[in-house]
């Protein structure tokens, strides 16, 4: 049994069918990729997997438990974190405050009213460690809105990472990044994979084929192909495309 499984997910918005029938599974300690052309239903699939939308049919299981339709906070509580394609930072907070709020120890004390978060050196230190890990050491007290685009992307992942999830979902992490920033990001993901299972939805195939252990191709709301990067490349049309040229 895989750590995360989705069975026959179906989702529609009024007349428009976005997910026809999606069955996927993601193994522990792997990087799993989801790719597909624009409008194929990738993002909706991601939102259903992470609890933002409830599927009309089908089931989502994590670690053997049925988590279909649970609200986001409960899914987060099970050890699933996600980043967002459209960045979702707390812009009025510093980079450090963004991270600290996501720490499990702070979440556990989320209803404390007398404890002073800014004087909690334990939480501050742990937040700083996460920032150092994502390459933002020295930017602790910069407002999130003052960070560069690449730094904001990194912080977006840092927030998800700070929650110490068992499974991390990354929604198009390279979107808007240049070549250099993408390379740095690939290095970062290569590093964090040691401690967390990762699912990446991605447009940039090169990025995905380099990192992922298995990839699912989604189109028309279905999984049209699935396998390891080498398996997927083993196709005449794929070899003839830009993707084939990468091999």
């Amino acid at each position: 049994m895989a750590l995360f499984e989705a069975h026959h997910l179906h989702k529609r918005f009024a007349d428009q069918v976005v997910l026809e029938d999606i069955t996927l599974s993601f193994e522990e300690n792997q990087i799993s990729g989801i790719m597909g052309p624009n409008g194929a239903g990738k993002t909706t699939c991601f939102n259903v997997l992470t609890g933002r939308f409830k599927p009309d049919r089908g089931q989502v299981r994590f670690d053997g438990q049925d988590i279909t339709g649970l609200p986001p906070r409960k899914i987060a509580g099970k050890g699933i974190a996600r980043s967002f394609q459209m960045m979702n930072l707390f812009d009025e907070y510093t980079a450090l405050e963004n991270i600290v709020l996501a720490l499990p120890e702070v979440r556990a004390r989320g209803f404390s009213v007398l404890h002073d978060l800014s004087n909690d050196s334990g939480a501050q230190d742990r937040g700083a460690q996460v920032l150092a890990r994502i390459g933002l050491a020295g930017r602790e007290h910069a407002l999130a809105s003052d960070l560069s685009y690449g730094q904001r992307r990194a912080l977006e992942i840092g927030i998800a990472l700070a929650a110490e999830p068992r499974m991390l979902f990354l929604d198009e992490p390279t979107s808007g990044l240049g070549m250099d920033a993408t390379a740095i990001l690939a290095e970062l993901i290569g590093e964090i994979r040691k401690s967390v299972s990762i699912v990446i939805i991605e447009h940039d195939m090169r990025f995905l084929f380099d990192l992922a252990d298995t990839i699912a191709v989604i189109h028309w709301g279905q999984v049209i192909a699935q396998g390891g990067p080498d398996e997927l490349r083993d196709n005449e049309w794929v070899r003839a495309s830009n993707l084939g040229a990468l091999a």
Partner: peptide, 12 residues
């Protein structure tokens, strides 16, 4: 600032 992110961090 961002209520949906807060929910995804596991807060009620």
């Amino acid at each position: 600032q961002n209520d949906s992110r807060v929910a995804f961090l596991g807060y009620n």
